[in-house]
Amino acid sequence: MLLDVLQGAEPGGFILIQDTVKCTGRGILKCFINAALKRGEDVHVLGFEASETEVCAGLDRSCVQKLHFHKGFPDPLGWMCRSSFTVDQLTSQHITKLIKDSQHAKAPVLVIDSLSLVLRHHDPVVISQRLQVLRKGGDIKTIISLLHSDLHLHGVVGIVSQLASTVISVAPANNEHHAVATTTRRSKSGKVMQEEEYFNVSEDMTLSVQAKLRQHGHVQKEQKVAEADPASNLTFNLRLSEEERKAKEKLALPFVFSKEKKSALLRPTPGSGRIMYEPDANDDFDEEDPDDDLDV
């Protein structure tokens, strides 16, 4: 499902990528940017936490001119008065103006990196309202945002997640080269789909989904390392040679019957005693009180 979300962003959607200290979500964010660029869409990135070089590293060179990076990073709060975009400017008027300034044919994609810095400085309620206005405004096709879920109160993460149409949480997997993404997608009708997948981000920011996580047994199989053979390095021989193995399998075990004998035993023989029982008045079983004769 992760790949579907990556490929077809429906209009008016809000995709939230949640990460923690243990596994960073910036890789998936860059995959989303790359996919949007490849589809020919314009992408506006509000970069607060990472520099432009870091965000643009690895993205598809040919489409980079469709990427508009608004430099929040060196000065997101305006302390040095040389930033082009500060945290306070995340309002619908400002963003709409920004988009109109760079003329586009169709509505662009807005990427926020990251929402954690914004939430640190503004009331979560106000920010959610602003994001909703932006979504419904029609000037923006999709909003994709990164949130560090372990830096906020559970309630705040909950508010923002509720606003999102798709929430992707990343977590580390036991396997070194993959991570686990839990995607929760909520459609307009209210239907919720959820899936857990292993994924990997390659050097050129393409996402590859390795396997779907069905149940926990699958996980165990992945992490099985070749175990040392316990029968080696012993002073006595525990292994079987080929003949020995065949002889062992041929051995008839005492209470294992052949198939015919089993079916013969299972067939009901005529004339064997049958017990007929009909409960009468004295056998009044009360299901709730099986031990009614106990005087406890």
């Binding site: 910036r26 890789g27 990472a50 870091e54 580390p172 070194e176 080269h177 993959h178 991570a179």
Partner: peptide, 9 residues
């Protein structure tokens, strides 16, 4: 060791 951003490992 935390490389900046993308790699999972």
């Amino acid at each position: 060791w935390r490389q900046s951003g993308e790699t999972m490992y």
